[in-house]
Nucleic acid binder design. Structure first.
Lengths: 194, 194
DNA sequence: TCTGATGTATGATGGTCGTCATATTATACG
DNA sequence: CGTATAATATGACGACCATCATACATCAGA
């Protein structure tokens, strides 16, 4: 029955999703066409609809993929630090020039969430899903304290995503660096030193 | 020399900019065509290039307009509070459901900065200009304290912009409200109570 | 009222987009 | 080696886009 090596199509699909996850974060969803996407995956535009029902269908899938990829990277950075300093290491890696300069491999929130808020329900549902997952993971790193941990995770995530987004938007490298440095300092002091 | 009532063209131009400032924040720059923009201002698409050199030219202008409009609104909210509570009032108005639900009349940072980071230098320069202005205004509201005031303003701005952006992106109204509430609480405690 | 300049509309151009119907290749089995 | 089928490519459709050349309408001054 299986004329092609089993999983050929599945692997191709994953390549498209992976290419899309990077391209969307780099150029925005509206900034990348289906044809360009298929080209990045080494294919032509026509076969796209054998893999996805629509572009939005791919966007939802790419959200999940982008989250997994970037989370793995940030988790790795945190793991290299001793347990007491893991949260500070995460903050340092997130609000870093390296993260700012690599939107294609970074967190999807500063890159795409503004655009995703105007997308189809299906896409927003996928984003919400990975957002919850990210908050839950961040929560586990926060120290026990008086105020609610979920609340602190939500505020910290907002601060970090905003910092990277604004650091990417401004034109002046010195100002951009300062946004990141100020956010690292202030949020580390506020959330990681208790 | 002046055959039309003086300032006719100028007033039309301002109407286009004002309509664009709102439309861009609502639908994204890529989400609104020149034709639709002119329609919103009560004109047809053709005359556009008598007013602007390009769409990007309008985007830069719309950034400035959006900043002025939204700043005036937020400043008004802060002014209604006694001097000691003005910063808390600003934070409360910024990270509010009302602001989240009115992107067209709100701050351009959560709505557009991610997209603007991928735009022409001219546009990013305009954004950087108004960003600096906003930081300077916020700085003046911050209490004197040990750590640098500019740093605190940059971090607070990041946190607020990120909170509104994420609150707009998630699908679940309860989660969205909680992002805002958590950010209000945490950032007010961290920045306004010293 | 006529005129000439000024502001706006009409219409077209070349390009790109998402989507789909159909043709073509590449593979595994008989 | 031939054949049926799975995976991809070709090509086209209608819609929309930014931009521009040109035609029209409007109004101040004579």
């Amino acid at each position: 029955m299986v004329r092609y090596p089993s999983g050929h199509k599945e692997r191709t699909r994953e390549q498209i999703v992976s290419a899309a996850a990077r391209a969307f974060r780099e150029e925005g969803v509206a900034g990348v066409s289906v044809g360009e996407l298929m080209g990045r995956a080494g294919l032509t535009h026509g076969g796209f609809y054998a893999h996805f029902r629509s572009k939005d269908d791919l966007v939802a899938e790419a959200c999940r993929c982008a989250f997994e990829e970037s989370t793995a990277r940030l988790r790795e950075a945190a793991r290299r630090a001793p347990p007491e300093e893991r949260l500070a290491a995460f903050i340092g890696a997130y609000a870093s020039p390296a993260h700012r300069d690599d939107p294609g491999g970074g967190c999807l929130m500063p890159a795409l969430s503004a655009e995703l808020s105007r997308h189809a329900p299906e896409v927003r549902a996928a984003f919400t899903e990975v957002f919850r997952e990210g908050i839950a993971a961040l929560e586990r790193q926060l120290p026990d304290e008086g105020t609610d941990r979920t609340d602190r995770a939500l505020a910290l995530m907002s601060g970090l995503a905003g910092a990277v987004m604004l650091a990417r938007a401004v034109d002046d490298p010195a100002l951009s660096d300062r946004i990141l440095q100020a956010s690292r300092d202030v949020f580390t002091a506020a959330f990681a030193e208790k």
